[in-house]
């Protein structure tokens, strides 16, 4: 595994949360990119090709699910690891769709930051499928 620092894209509209996540991951040695909504996130992702995306669901302009679907249509995008961050699952169908393509979903308020970091590291350590 290369020792170059890995890049994570965090897509989250809530300021305090994105700040905390960015602070933590930077502290952990990651290169962190930010986006405040799905459209911005999609654009940054396709441009910068991060190693992993942390994706919030409820966002203005374009929500996480739509961005995720669009992402998966992209040549590169269809295999990038995505971890959904959310406070709840809004309805089953979305959950199902997410389950098909996303790799994990975490309930923000129930998880410690270090758990999120651990999940990210775990995911990055896995081979891409």
């Amino acid at each position: 595994m290369t020792k170059k620092s890995q890049t994570i894209l965090i897509v989250e509209d809530e300021k305090p949360l994105i700040r905390a996540l960015c602070d933590k991951f930077r502290h952990e040695g990651f290169n962190v990119l930010e986006a405040r909504n799905g459209a911005e996130g999609l654009e940054v992702a396709l441009r910068e090709h991060p190693d992993l995306i942390l994706l919030d669901i409820i966002m203005p302009v374009m929500d996480g699910v739509s961005m995720f679907k669009k992402l998966r249509e992209d040549e590169w995008g269809k295999s990038v690891p995505v971890i959904m961050l959310t406070n709840l699952i809004y309805n089953e169908k979305i959950a199902e769709a997410i389950m098909q393509g996303s790799h994990e979903y975490l309930v923000k308020s129930d998880f410690k930051l270090e758990d999120v970091v651990a999940k990210v590291r775990e995911r990055l350590a896995m081979p891409h499928n």
């Binding site: 809530e14 305090p16 949360l17 905390a20 602070d23 923000k108 308020s109 930051l113």
Partner: peptide
């Protein structure tokens, strides 16, 4: 939930 998450995460850090 959002402010709670922020509080908890920063405290954790």
């Amino acid at each position: 939930r959002t402010p709670l998450s922020a509080i908890n995460w920063y405290t954790e850090m």
